[in-house]
Design a protein around this nucleic acid. Structure first.
Length: 656
RNA sequence: GCCCGAGUAGCUCAGGGGUAGAGCGCUUCCUUGGUAAGGAAGAGGGCAUGGGUUCAAAUCCCAUCUCGGGCUCCA
């Protein structure tokens, strides 16, 4: 037999022995053979110019084509190699690290880690990109070769690439593949597959230069990471770049400045937030809303200090396991104290303050608890990663038989709250103990089983789809993490519901059961926002600074057309203030156009324009920030509509 | 913490070995104009900090501080 039988989709046929993957695709699908980047042969990824293996039975072939996830991966991975080739070309002696495609990262599409003889600077990126473009135009072939391990090691030793040798040593048994790019000093140890030649790479861009440790280990070599992205067409790339600009416009740090919401000042400390009046009022509204909900769900409110004796942190285990993230102790009259990185031990103190009966449970303590963590300076980022922040914390002390109902209530609570904030997509992840052997989990097996079952059941009862992740539980118990998707499709991990077997044990928590014997309660940690600061940042980006009416720092701007109307404008503002709204009357001697522009830039939901006509008729002309002129109405009607928006915490500014 | 980059007026930024610049904002004056910028004048800065080099440093060099992009998602 000199033919190989081939299956392509639902069709079958045969090709002569020695035919390449591409030859085979041509037999079945001319279009795909032109656009294909690589292929899957019996499920394994293959380069197009590889010979088809002759195996028993039919060989199944599937073309990897553009506009698919697999295609994108091949494209970006190949582009990463083109990048490495260009760097090697421009900077001989460069050592290579790894260069994967990134498919799920919204910021970048691939990277390559390198160590160049002289450190690269951002000015080098355009040069490298230009070289990549030159190479792309020349349709240089990617060549694959299967080589024995000893030989590969030799190749990379000769090129003095110790990092590659390390990788090869770890990953290879027997033989492996290396790739070359024609007419380039590039050789890489790589699984493939790649596009057949560089001409397939038509739309790429280098985006950033940063540092990266070899294997992410701060003890190892510091490398330079070049980030870029690639798409199938120039149009897609341009669209993506534009969307990236849009995202940059929403940056909460920029908006925080422009809208005068908060600041972070060196004189006060990195990672420490100063909330300005306008940010403060938004935060207050957020907290008020939460407090209402907490009361509805029968939580109690507690307040605890920011600092506690060091010994307490020894009992809680934080001294042993979390000390790196805690501020150093401070001493007064020979006693050491430390700032709190978490609120839990304090809530435990409240639980322990008296003997609890099974009738007293559950106890639900909530607190906007401000905590301090000694984050490394390089990881700080606006409101998203800070050193002092406030957790919308709650700890529930429950009997084992109450876990299901309590977790269920937490879920309802979360869904309700996130819906109000306009997050339409909320994703849940259940992290369980699983099979992970390298992790030590505390607590009795039966407790784990019961708790994991209760978490899953609570989700199922509500018909909430969730992802179950084995081995990702905390060492002290299983958990449900809550992630939301924002207006431009980015996901943010926010809330969490965690069962804790550890702290009740450490602090010897008890309640007296129906049987008059002591029992150990379960503890549930529960936060919806995680950090109020961070959630505020997420909201700011989600709304692009245009807060819904109930949250807006300034809800209404009254804009008189001439100075003659100032007095009337003030009286309208006064009436609105009395009705409970946040109003500013702009009585400067600007033209209305300028006043409107001002209010638009500050993203004020409603502008009330008043001139001679309004004064005469005793009404107002309403302009909504995105809908524009709504015509005139009476102050009373406006107040009525606005009051409805406020009371319902509406996301729209629909007055009717 | 580490790598690259950046710190100039309240904000956004230009400049660059030889007298400190613009726009916005702010103050005052003129203007009273119907839905995204009317006009003029003025105030405001040891150019992040500390050292050097130089006749001369905001500018060049070193250090420090802060900010920004990042720090194993199959080779």
């Amino acid at each position: 037999m000199s033919d190989i039988s081939v299956k392509y989709g639902d069709r079958a046929g045969s090709v002569p022995l020695g035919a390449t993957v591409l030859d085979a695709i041509k037999e079945f699908d001319r279009d795909a053979s032109k656009s294909a980047l690589a292929a899957k042969v019996n499920g394994e990824e293959f380069d197009l110019d590889r010979e088809l293996p002759s195996l028993d039975g039919a060989v199944e072939i599937e073309a990897i084509v553009p506009e698919t996830r697999d295609g994108l991966e091949v494209l970006r991975h190949s582009t990463a190699h083109l990048l490495a080739a260009a760097v090697l070309d421009l900077y001989p002696g460069t050592k290579l690290g790894i260069g994967p495609a990134l498919l799920d990262d919204p910021r970048y599409g691939f990277f390559y880690d390198v160590i160049t003889p002289e450190p690269l600077s951002v000015d080098d990126l355009p040069k490298i990109e230009k070289r990549m473009q030159q190479m792309a135009k020349r349709n240089l072939k990617y060549r694959r070769e299967d080589v024995a391990k000893a030989k590969i090691l030799e190749i990379f030793k000769d090129r003095s690439e110790p990092l590659k040798c390390e990788l090869i040593d770890e990953k290879v048994e027997g033989s492996a593949t290396v790739y070359y790019i024609d007419d380039s000093p590039f050789i890489d140890f790589c699984l493939g597959p790649h596009v057949p030649h560089t001409g397939k790479l038509k739309a790429f861009k280098l985006l950033a230069l940063s540092g990266a440790y070899w294997k992410g280990d701060a003890e190892r070599e510091q490398m330079q990471r070049i980030y870029g992205t690639a798409f199938f067409s120039k149009e897609e790339l341009d669209a993506w770049l534009k969307q990236r600009e849009e995202a940059a416009k929403r940056d909460h740090r920029k908006l925080g400045q422009e809208l005068d919401l908060f600041s972070i000042q060196d004189d006060y400390g990195q990672g420490l937030i100063l909330w300005h009046p306008k940010g403060g009022i938004v935060r207050m509204e957020m907290e008020n809303f939460l407090k209402e909900k907490l009361q509805e769900h029968d939580y109690s409110f507690v307040y605890t200090p920011h600092i506690a004796k060091r010994d307490l942190w020894k009992v809680s285990g934080h001294e042993d396991n979390y000390a790196d993230s805690m501020f150093a102790p401070t001493t007064i009259e020979d006693t050491e104290f430390r700032l709190k990185p978490m609120n839990c031990p304090f809530h435990i103190g409240i639980y322990k303050s008296s003997k609890r009966s099974y009738r007293d449970l559950p106890q639900r303590y909530s607190e906007m608890g401000t905590v301090y963590r000694a984050e490394l300076s390089g990881t700080l980022h606006g409101l998203m990663r800070v050193r002092g922040f406030t957790v919308d914390d709650a700890h529930l002390f429950v009997r084992p038989d109450q876990v299901l109902a309590e977790v269920g209530d937490c879920l309802d609570f979360a869904v309700d709250v996130f819906e109000t904030y306009g997050f339409e997509k909320v994703n849940f992840e259940l992290s369980v103990r699983g099979e992970a052997e390298n992790k030590k989990f505390l607590g009795a097996d039966e407790d784990w089983e019961q708790a994991e079952a209760a978490l899953a059941k609570a989700l199922n009862e509500r018909g909430i789809p969730f992802e179950r992740i084995e081995g990702e539980a905390a060492f002290y118990g299983p958990k449900i993490d809550i992630k939301v998707e924002d207006a431009i499709g980015r996901t943010w991990q926010l809330g969490t519901i965690q069962i804790d077997f550890n702290l009740p044990e450490r602090f010897g928590l008890e309640y007296v059961g129906e049987d008059n014997h002591p029992h150990r309660p379960f503890m549930i940690h529960r936060a919806l926002f995680g950090s109020v600061e961070r959630f505020f940042g997420v909201l700011l980006e989600h709304f692009a600074g245009a807060f819904p009416f109930w949250l807006a720092p300034v809800q209404v701007a009254v804009l008189p057309i001439t100075d003659r109307i100032n007095e009337y404008a003030e009286s309208v503002a006064e009436a609105l203030k009395k009705a409970g709204f946040r109003v500013e009357a702009n009585t400067r001697s600007d033209k209305v156009g300028a006043k409107i522009r001002d209010a638009q830039m500050q993203k004020v939901p409603f502008m009330l324009i008043v001139g001679d006509q309004e004064l005469e008729q005793g009404n107002i002309a309403v302009r909504e920030r995105s809908k524009g002129d709504l015509g005139s109405m009476s102050v009373e009607d406006f107040i009525e509509g606005a009051a409805r928006l406020k009371a319902s915490r509406s996301l729209s500014n629909d007055l009717a």
